[in-house]
Design a protein around this nucleic acid. Structure first.
Lengths: 142, 142
DNA sequence: AAGCTAGCTGAGACTCAGTATCATCGGCGC
DNA sequence: GCGCCGATGATACTGAGTCTCAGCTAGCTT
């Protein structure tokens, strides 16, 4: 079964090259957030050489297609996350790295409030949430 | 008149050194977000030499004291912003860089919703908003 | 199936933010 | 003033991300 990202590539009408397939597969197998360096290491682990520059380019491409998203970690670092193309936000577990998506709806009212208070016209926003996932919560309770 | 940051340093009981005063003044004069490199350049422009490492250290210190905050720009870069120490979020004008603070209250309900939907226990979050400030809006309308 | 070409790739040099180290300096409590 | 200890600056280092360019290849064309 081909990864859903490969399907997205196909639909977008971009070339389906070797490195793109490999990276799409590796991304599909990852659960939590990952960095460009992680992917490069994964590829090396499989004895598939993918240039560092290519990893960044492909990550950019996927992000443009909406197949993955770039998020900012609390420590200031960056990471990528496979996700649905619709606008949404991420909840990242600070213990195990597991991540979940949250629909954007919850923020709509808040954004409207902020617009009327500040006079700004809000064009875009980014919200990232960090905490403990259900599994890590119950482990912490024991 | 001393910058409000100098007061914060005093209260926190940390040393009031030359570089800290200089950087506090430079930060107080800035309107929008700024980077560590911006500050270093400002200092050089005034013929005051402040080591690059010191700029980062002082920025860290100020951030710890809550006198400034680190924000993530939409392009993935970082910047700092002078602000009040209470928890809040920033609205940054994507045209002129002017920034405003928004109290955290608007998000409380949204965070509660997200907790009940996902089962996560949310410990922290970061919200950044980008758009046009009132002034740039009216200029854009003309 | 062979040819063509735009677009992709990999190597490697480069930039730039941020960190680590360490000898020296200078705030500030005495 | 004196002296201690934290702060400083010079310098070297790391690691993420970008740029360039020669060579390669996916997939259209015939």
């Amino acid at each position: 079964m081909p990864s859903p990202i490969v399907g997205a590539l196909d639909e977008a009408g971009v070339r389906l090259t070797g490195p793109r397939r490999v990276l799409a597969d590796l991304i599909a197998e990852r659960r939590g957030p990952f960095s460009a360096a992680d992917l490069a290491a994964d590829a090396r682990g499989r004895r598939v050489e993918v240039g560092r520059a290519t990893v960044f380019r492909v990550l950019d491409l996927f992000a443009e297609l909406g197949a993955i998203e770039r998020i900012d970690l609390p420590d200031g670092g960056h990471a990528y996350l496979a996700c649905e193309p619709s606008h949404h936000h991420h909840v990242v577990c600070s213990s195990c790295g597991r991540a979940t998506e949250v629909a954007d709806g919850v923020l709509r009212d808040a954004v409207r409030d902020i617009e009327s208070v500040t006079g700004f016209r809000i064009d875009s926003h980014r919200l990232e949430l960090f905490g403990l996932c259900p599994r890590c919560r119950s482990e912490a309770d024991e």
